[in-house]
Simulated scan of single mutants.
Amino acid sequence: MNTIEQQLWDYIDGNLDEIQIKNIEEKIESNAAVKLQYEELLNLNFAFSEMELDEPSMSFTRNVMENVALEPAPVSLKTRVDTRIIFSIGAFFVISILGLLGYILYNSTFTMPNFGKYFTADFNLDKYITPTAMYVFIGLDIIIGLIFMDYVLRRKLNHKD
């Protein structure tokens, strides 16, 4: 669709402002081809306005919904993964890791430094195990135990229902 045809349709529909209306009217008066095209578009617009719109029957929606209800409901696909495939992939990776670890151990040399000269183990446990540390440890154990008991009791209660 060219611009003059679009402008003529906008003129017929009344979608133009005053300046554009004056410009289109001048084009229609001065150019015979534009005037002919304008008259054809007016006739076409009149033919469209005279056409009667088809409406669906009153029971159209009900009929469509009944046909939809008769269709079988789609079944969700439930695929089952073969566990042998999962285990074989896992076995491949475990064997690969063990092979790499064996290769590294085979090609490496182990030399242990003499730690006896530089390392002295003098642990003073009384410095680390204080009454406060024991109370914190026992308190955390009690809290963890209570959480575990709550979990077990809730699980038993849910299985009874």
Score class of each variant (00 low, 15 high):
9 W>Y: 08
150 D>Y: 08
7 Q>I: 04
62 R>Y: 13
112 M>H: 10
25 E>A: 07
62 R>F: 07
86 I>P: 06
114 N>W: 02
93 F>P: 00
63 N>T: 10
68 V>W: 05
153 L>E: 12
126 D>E: 07
76 S>R: 12
117 K>S: 13
108 S>A: 12
57 S>F: 08
45 N>L: 08
81 V>N: 02
57 S>R: 05
10 D>P: 03
123 F>L: 14
138 I>L: 02
94 V>Y: 00
142 I>N: 00
117 K>Q: 15
12 I>Q: 03
79 T>C: 05
110 F>P: 02
129 I>Y: 13
82 D>R: 12
14 G>T: 04
13 D>R: 15
22 K>G: 11
16 L>F: 04
149 M>D: 14
134 M>H: 01
1 M>Q: 10
55 E>I: 13
108 S>W: 09
146 L>M: 10
66 E>W: 04
71 E>S: 03
90 G>Y: 04
129 I>S: 01
147 I>V: 11
81 V>H: 09
43 N>R: 14
55 E>Y: 15
59 S>G: 10
155 R>T: 09
66 E>S: 01
101 L>R: 10
125 L>S: 15
95 I>N: 05
51 M>P: 00
133 A>Y: 05
85 I>P: 01
11 Y>I: 05
120 T>Q: 10
54 D>Q: 11
144 I>S: 03
161 D>N: 11
98 L>N: 09
132 T>A: 15
36 L>D: 01
59 S>C: 09
92 F>H: 03
146 L>Y: 06
108 S>C: 08
142 I>H: 04
